[in-house]
Design a protein around this nucleic acid. Structure first.
Lengths: 199, 199, 199, 199
DNA sequence: ACTTAATCGAGACGGTACGTCAAGTCTTTTG
DNA sequence: CAAAAGACTTGACGTACCGTCTCGATTAAGT
C-alpha cells in the first residue's frame, strides 16, 4: 500500500507538521531559498521525507506555508492601520514602515523566496492572495474608506487602484532593486497618490 | 572550474554560442524554466557541457542571455515611443500594448523565467537594468520630456517617479496575477498618472 | 516489537491467518517471490500489517508457511509410493513424475522462492526438513526397505545415501538449470542407483 | 543527457571497477549478502552510485562478479586435478577437500549469496556455468577420462552423469544443511560412484 | 605550410537530491 | 483486547543533473 492516496488528516501528527515548517523557515534563513532541500528539511525536523511528501505537493508549498505561518501568528486576528484622522500622516507612517521592512535583510530573504514561488505557480499566487495579501488589503481599504468619508479622498475613487498606485512602485523598486527605499521615496508616493485622488 | 582560467574569447565558437542560446530559448518554451537543465541545453545544442561552463557561470546566466538576445535583436538599435503630440493618447496606446504583451502566453514564459532569476540574483538584476530596462526607460522618459515641454506635464515632475506610477501597477498585477490586464486598466493608469503630474 | 510481547494465540483470528497465507501464495504466483511485500500481502488479505507482524517474524516465514500449507493440504496425512513389487519400475515412475513436476512453471515459482529462503536461513531449513522433506523421505525409505526385503537392493545399503544419489542430481540440475529434466535422465538416475546398491 | 544508454567501455575507470568489486566482496563478508546495499557498496568504494548502475544491471550482478573475480584470480589459467594413477584415492582427496571448503564459514557466505542469485536469475545461472562451473567440470572430466583409459571406469560411462552422482549429494547436503559434511560422507560418495560406473 | 595550443563534442566520474517504495513501529478506532 | 487502518521514522531504491575531469579531433594562430 503506497502512501500516494488521500492521507486522512485526522491522524496527522501536529508535532511533525510544526517541526517541518519550523525547519523550513530556519533553513531559508541559513542557506537561502534556492539551496533548501526537502532532505535537509526532513533531517532538521527529525521527520521522514515521506511525511513531507504526504502532506505537501512540492518544496514550494512547504516553504510557502512556513512563511505564511510566520506572518500570521503575531498579528493573529485583527489587522488595522493607524487612524489619526490625518490620512497623509497616517499613510506616510505606514509607507515608511513598509519601506524599512523591505530594507531589512532578515525580512527580505523569506519574502523573496516566497515571491519566487508565487511568480511561477498560479496556485500559490492564489493562496497568497487569499491568506496574506487579501486581508492586508482589506485593512488598508478600510482606512482609505474612512478618508473618503472625511472628504480627504475623492468619493468615487477606486480603492484598489489607489492601493496599486501607492504600493506597486515601492514593491517593484524592492523586487528589482531598481532604486533605494528611502523615507523620502515613501513620502513622495503618498503625495503623488493623494494628488491623483484628491476630491 | 578547471578549464576556465582564462577562456580566450578570440577562439570562441560562434556556432556553439548561438546554438546554446537558441537551445536554451527553445527549452524554456517547451518545458518551462524550472525544468531546463544544462545537460538538456548541451544535448539539444549538440555541444559538450564544458563548452557551456566555460563561457557562462550558471544556468541563470545562460537563460538570461538567451532571453536578452531574443529581446534585443528585433528592435536593434533605436527604441522610440510614438509622439503624436497628444501625450494621453500616446501613453494609452503604449500601455494597452504593454498589457496585451503581458497577456500573451508566448511572451509570458520567458519573462517570468527572467524575473525569477532577477529576483534572487542582484548581479543579473543590474545587468537587466543596464541592457534591457534602462534603454527602454530612457525612451519613455524622452517622450515624457517632450510632454513637459509641451506643457502637458508638470515641468518639475520627477520622470522616474512618473514612470514608476505608470508602469508598476500593471507590472505587479501581471507578476502576482492579482487582476486582469484589461485595456480599461491601462487607460485608468494613464489617467491617474496624468492627473497626479498635471502642470 | 511493541504489540508482540506475548501474542496470545487463543484469540487469534483464523479468518485472518488463512487470508494472509492465501494472499501470500497468490502474490508469489502473480509477481514472483522477490517482489512480494508485506504491505501487499496485508492489503490483499484485508488485514492490518500489525496482524502479520504479530504472528510471523519475517516475510520469509509467511511465504514459507504459505507454501507449506499449499503442499500439505492435498496429500493430507499419508504419503506412500507405489509398490508393484518391481523397484526399478516404481522408481522410474516416481522419478519421471518428479522431473515433470520440476519442469512445470506453476510448480517452479513457489519452490524456488522457498529454496531462496531456506538457503539463507538455517531455521527455515530445519522447519522445511521437519515438516516437508522429512515425511516424504520416510515414505521413500519405506519403499526402499521393501525392496531390500525383496532382495532387490543390498541389505546393508544406507538408505539416506541411496536417496541422496537418486534425487540430488535431479534436484541440482533443476536448481542450477544445468541441463534438461528429461524422462531419460530420470531413468538413468534410477539405473545408476540400482547398479550402485545392488545386492 | 541521461546516463541510461550504452556506456562506452573504453573510457571506463579501472580504478572504480576494482574498488566496487572489492567493496562488494568485503561487505558480503561483513554484513551478509541480504543486507548489502548498492549505496553501501558505492560509499565504501568511494564511487558515485551511477558508476555502479552504469556498468551493472543489478546488485546481483555486482555481487556475482565480485565473487567470480575472487575465485578466478588465484587459479588464473589452468585448473587440473591430481592424477596419481589411483582414481579412488584422487577422488577421495578432492571430495574431502570440497567438503572441507563448504564447511568453512569464510567460504560459505559468498557462495550462498551467489547461489541465492543463481536460483532466481537464469542469466546469472548461465554466466555461472560458463565462467566458473564449466571450466571446473572440464578439469574433472579430464581426470575421469584418464581413469577410463586406465580401465578404472566403464569406457561407456556418461561423464556428466558420473560427476552429477559424485557431487550433487554433497552439494545438496550443504545447501539444505541436511546433514554433516564429513570426510566419511565424501568417501562414501566416491565408493558409490565407482561401484556404479565400474567397468 | 607547419606546428602548437586552446576549444570543441563527448561522456565518465564523484556527488547531492530527487520522489517512491517498503520495512517495521506506533497510535487510534471499531467490533 | 485483537484487529483494521494507516501515519510514522528509517533507509534503500533507481534516476536526473550537477560541476569537474579526461579524452581524441578540429581549428585557428603565430611562427
Amino acid at each position: 500500500m503506497s502512501d500516494a492516496r488521500k492521507p486522512y488528516p485526522a491522524r496527522r501528527s501536529e508535532r511533525s507538521r510544526h517541526a517541518i515548517l519550523e525547519a523550513a523557515r530556519a533553513l531559508i534563513g541559513e542557506v537561502g531559498y534556492g539551496k533548501v532541500s526537502i532532505e535537509a528539511i526532513a533531517a532538521r525536523a527529525g521527520v521522514g521525507k515521506q511525511t513531507i511528501y504526504r502532506w505537501w505537493p512540492s518544496k514550494g508549498a512547504v516553504v510557502f506555508e512556513s512563511i505564511l505561518a510566520l506572518s500570521q501568528d503575531p498579528q493573529s486576528e485583527e489587522i488595522a492601520l493607524p487612524d489619526t484622522g490625518d490620512i497623509e500622516a497616517d499613510l506616510k507612517l505606514v509607507m515608511r514602515a513598509t519601506a524599512a521592512e523591505f530594507a531589512d535583510p532578515a525580512f527580505e530573504a523569506p519574502i523573496r523566496a516566497l515571491t519566487s514561488e508565487i511568480v511561477n505557480d498560479p496556485d500559490l499566487a492564489a493562496q497568497y492572495h487569499e491568506r496574506l495579501a487579501g486581508p492586508l488589503e482589506e485593512a488598508k481599504k478600510a482606512r482609505l474608506r474612512a478618508a473618503q468619508e472625511a472628504g480627504q479622498l475623492a468619493a468615487d475613487a477606486d480603492l484598489d487602484l489607489v492601493l496599486d498606485v501607492l504600493y506597486s512602485p515601492l514593491h517593484r523598486r524592492w523586487l528589482y532593486r531598481s532604486g533605494p527605499l528611502t523615507p523620502e521615496y515613501a513620502d513622495a508616493l503618498v503625495d503623488v497618490t493623494l494628488r491623483a485622488f484628491r476630491p
